[in-house]
Design a protein around this nucleic acid. Structure first.
Lengths: 205, 205
DNA sequence: CGACACATGTAACACGTTACATGATTTG
DNA sequence: CAAATCATGTAACGTGTTACATGTGTCG
């Protein structure tokens, strides 16, 4: 649902055609979320159907006489954009987190080696983190003053913050599982139920 | 794509029918990611088509003579699950982050009050954080020893880590924007173009 | 009995990806 | 000129949500 609004928002800069829209989007987000060109056209069609944009056949501005199928945001479109900016992204129904789902299920199944899953995941994520920092050094020399480069840089930071949070969470999970295992040591290998005393957890909460 | 694997993984516990699968899933993830019952059936159909599960008409175990349409994981299904657990969730194409996209575009558009967007978002996210901690206190009395409750608790922690990372990122963005504004002070309020020396145009790019 | 939860589906739609078709323009 | 890139689409498929239809079991 965010592509639609993003495209509409970019149209605030003026009428554009499909390819241009994709270029503008990717310039701001880097190679992070490549935007499928097919989807650009289908989304534009739906936006037009919903009265958010209208077609403006425009000559290419580069002098050639080629015309493109450009789109311009309508009044409705512009108001949808400002509402998008004015409303915080809700956390009521966060997108499903595959890693969280995976671990949540893993800890409930017998015979699944959760510790290994965690270690592999952390190692993969830390590799990504290194890639991100490498990207930040290499990054788009250009001029860091330009808003598009600032945008891309912020997106990159967002990925870093996210990956760091994931690593922290993995450490946290590891610790909690270790404590849980310490409380009832037999449960791992040969499945001895050990009758769990009272409620004396130690798992906190 | 994660629901499919999650359902398949849960079937490792033994044959189940639609409603049961949903209940097992939601018990592990709390009310975080409610699983649509319609999707359960369509996903089961596709899993069967792909040879991952097979139907086992089973009598309900609670004594009643009612039979349910239960599914059991096949050999292929089981191997897909173990591969799922063995492979880290890749960060190569992370799911699109609506907030990051929104801010990335916002900073490149003239006349958008990014500072306000950030403040509103942070305030909304911190409210969610409070809800999470309240949930952690209230949480599912039951017994925290039970693996399902541990799972749900880890998921909740994941939400917290995520929200905290978001707040940190918002602070980070705010700081960077303040620095950028300090470097070229005129750009904010009354849209004074200040003629940006060399490349002219003001629209940049 | 009537309301409600359980249980199994189907249809319609939105969104997203991959792949293909078809031209025009640019460039080695 | 041939190949690559730009540009605009369409078709097929997977996934996800919402809504509807239909029937069974339970409980006040």
């Amino acid at each position: 649902m965010s592509i639609r609004q993003a495209m509409l928002a970019i149209l605030e800069q003026g009428p554009m055609y499909g390819y241009q829209l994709r270029a503008e989007f990717e310039q701001r987000t880097g190679e992070t979320w490549p935007l499928n060109i097919g989807q650009v056209y289908t989304t534009l069609t739906r936006l037009e159907r919903d009265g958010m944009v209208e077609v403006v056949e425009s000559a290419a501005e580069d002098g050639s006489d080629r015309t493109h199928v450009s789109y311009r945001a309508t009044e409705s479109g512009r108001s949808e954009v400002s509402e998008w900016f004015a409303t915080p992204v809700p956390r009521t129904q966060p997108p499903r987190d595959e890693l969280a789902i995976k671990l949540a299920i893993a800890v409930t199944l017998p015979g699944v080696d959760v510790a290994t899953i965690i270690q592999r995941q952390r190692s993969a994520t830390m590799t990504s983190l290194q890639d991100y920092t490498r990207l930040k050094r290499t990054g788009r020399a250009a001029n860091p003053e330009a808003p598009e480069d600032l945008a891309w840089s912020l997106v990159l930071d967002s990925l870093v913050f996210d990956a760091e949070a994931e690593v922290r969470w993995l450490d946290h999970c590891e610790a909690r599982l270790r404590r849980a295992a310490a409380d009832r040591p037999a449960a791992s290998a040969h499945a001895t139920p050990t009758a769990t005393p009272e409620t004396s957890d130690g798992v906190a909460r």
